[in-house]
Structure formats: C-alpha cells, structure tokens
C-alpha cells in the first residue's frame, strides 16, 4: 500500500513536477523579457517569440559549427558553448530594431498600439529571417548525455514499479533559469543602473528630473531582454525541439504569464510562468495511472481521466488569462497596468 503512494508520487513528479519546472522556467524567462519591455518601453512586444527563435537559430548554427570541429562539452549539450553567440545575435537584433523602428515612435511619443503594430512588422522580418536562414522545419540540436536520472535505474534503486526520469535538458533548463533570474534580480535590486531602470519604469518624468539618461536605460533594457530572449529560446529548443512556428505560439502562454503575474513586474512574470506551465500540464495530464495506484481496485477508472486533451493546452493559458483579466486586471502581484 505505501508503495502505491510512493509510486503515485513518482508518477506525479515524473509527468507533472519535473516537466512543469522545466517548462515553467522557459516561460518565466520569456515572460521576464516581455515584462521588461513593457515596464521600460511600455508596449507588448509581439516580436518576442520570433526573436527567441532568432537567438536559438544562431546558437544552433554555432553548435553545428562546433560539432563539425569536434568540440563538445562532454555530457552537457554543445549548445551551451554556442549560447553566447545566440545571446549576442539576439542583443544585436533588439538594438538594431530599436534604432530602426521603435526609437522613432518613442520620440513621437506614439500610443502603445502603434508600438505594437511596429512590433508586428519586426515580427514579420525576424520570422522571415529565421525561415530564410535555417528553414521552417524541425531541428533537434541537443547532444551529450540524455538523462540525469534514468527511469530504469530509479526503479532498480528504489524497488518501485514507477521510475523517475530527469532529462539533462530539463535539469539544465531549471538550473540556468534560476541562475539567470538570480542575476537579473540582483541587478535590478542592488545595482545603481538596475535601480535607475526601475525608477524610469516607475516614473519617467521624475527619472528625467533626477538626471537618469533614458537612452541608456533603453539600451540596457534591450541588452537584458536580448540575453533573456536567447537563453529562453535555446533552453526551449533544447528541451522540446527547434521549430520557428512553435516560438510564435509561445507568445500566448508568455503573455499570459506576464499578465497573470502583473505585467511590468519581474517577480510576477516568474510566478506567472510557473502558474501557466503547471496549469497547462496538470490540466492536460491523464491521471488514470495515478488514480489506479491510489484508489481501491473496485473504483479504478477506465477512462484516461484527463480534463482536457493536450491539443488544448493553449486554452489553459487563455482561460487563466481571461480569469485574471476579469477579476484582477492588474495581475496577482499588482503590475503597472490600466
């Protein structure tokens, strides 16, 4: 009996907890970028998903090159070595697009919706570049060791019938995301430049009065956002696989994460990312096996015991988004909105 409970826990960890932590980290990194652009530049960036694909693409190109030279990181994916290339590419993309596109509307003091339309133009270009350079198809670029913990070994070690497996990419995603977030929060809370970013986001006029240079704030913001974009894009691509279109589709869960947490609020973005990820996985998971372990035999379910089919995972983020828009438009952690 107690083994049944353990087995049920392992199932939940294996199919909900571990994937949720990995996916949540990816969404959180993406939502952080969206929320920072919103907080400082005051618009919803529709090019965010495609920029992630752009950063991931350069990392893939770098990975392929490194692999052709026979360079690898042993058990870790080679992509980590090529990540700096992706980061630089994403930062450059952001800065160039800011210079060519967004700067003009900032000077004109245009309405947020003009920025959004401009970001649609940037999205077209970025998307086109990605498809043009690397093609629209699937690209798996993860190498090195596949698992940190293998299900079979886990079963043998603990004598359970269910095994826990943790993929290398899942572990890496979580660790790198935590490091990136810790660095970001340290920067925002502890450094003078980070504080000036927060001040600018809080009250632009007063920031100007205090002698904070808006151009510098915008520059730093894009550098940070570009870094987050590339990291999120690469981690997602490593964990799932790289396909340009899926990055566009990440927009909805990422926006939902940012809004649910309170748009403009970085802590909220992280919280929102994990909320969306866990809800998505928990609602679309089939609980049949889990219940078989826990329920007495006569109540064993015969259906899949799945609330929603996985094809509707978008619906989950959307439902949460709608609920938040109706009941708490400022988000769980009061972002700067309306």
């Amino acid at each position: 009996m107690s083994n049944d409970i353990l087995n049920a826990l392992v199932i939940i960890s294996n199919y909900i907890l571990v994937p949720g932590l990995a996916y949540g980290s990816q969404l959180a990194l993406g939502a952080l970028g969206i929320t920072l652009v919103y907080a400082v530049l005051r618009f919803s960036n529709f090019a965010h998903g495609d920029s992630m694909a752009f950063g991931a693409m350069f990392t893939i190109l770098g990975t392929t090159w490194l692999q052709s030279k026979g360079i690898s990181l042993g058990p870790l994916p080679t992509a980590l070595l090529a990540l700096p290339l992706g980061i630089i590419a994403a930062i450059l993309l952001c800065l160039i697009m800011d210079k060519l596109v967004y700067q003009h509307y900032r000077q004109q003091k245009s309405t947020p919706v003009m920025f959004v339309i401009a970001s649609v133009g940037v999205m077209f270009i970025t998307n086109g570049l990605v498809r043009f350079i690397i093609g629209p198809g699937d690209r798996a670029f993860s190498d090195g060791q596949r698992f940190i913990i293998k299900a079979r070994e886990f079963k043998r070690m603990y004598g359970l019938s269910e095994g826990l497996s943790i993929k290398m990419t899942q572990g890496l995603t979580f660790v790198i995301a935590i490091i990136a977030m810790a660095l970001l929060f340290w920067f925002l809370q502890r450094t003078k430049t980070g504080k000036s970013m927060r001040a600018y986001s809080d009250n632009e006029d007063l920031a100007l009065l205090s002698g904070i240079n808006p151009q510098r704030v915008v520059f730093i913001t894009w550098v940070i956002v570009g870094t987050l974009i590339a990291i999120a894009g690469v981690l997602y691509g490593l964990d799932k696989s790289f396909k340009p279109f899926t990055y566009f589709q990440l927009l909805l869960p990422m926006f939902a994460a940012a809004i649910v947490g309170g748009i403009g609020n970085p802590v909220g973005a992280v919280l929102g990312g994990f909320i969306i990820a866990f809800s998505e996985i928990a609602v679309t998971y089939a609980y049949r096996k889990f219940l078989i372990y826990l329920l007495p035999e006569q109540y064993e379910p015969d259906g899949l015991m799945q609330l929603l089919s996985t094809d509707y995972k978008f619906a989950v983020s959307f439902m949460i988004l709608v609920a938040v828009l109706i009941w708490r438009p400022t988000g769980l952690l009061r972002g700067k909105s309306i």
Partner: peptide, 14 residues
C-alpha cells in the same frame, strides 16, 4: 513626485 515602487532609500539614491 516620488518613485512609488522604490523604497524610500532607493528614492533618495535615485
């Protein structure tokens, strides 16, 4: 005339 989301100390620092 204050940065509402910053602490008092950070306001002074800014």
């Amino acid at each position: 005339n204050v940065f509402v989301s910053l602490s008092v100390e950070e306001n002074l620092e800014m």
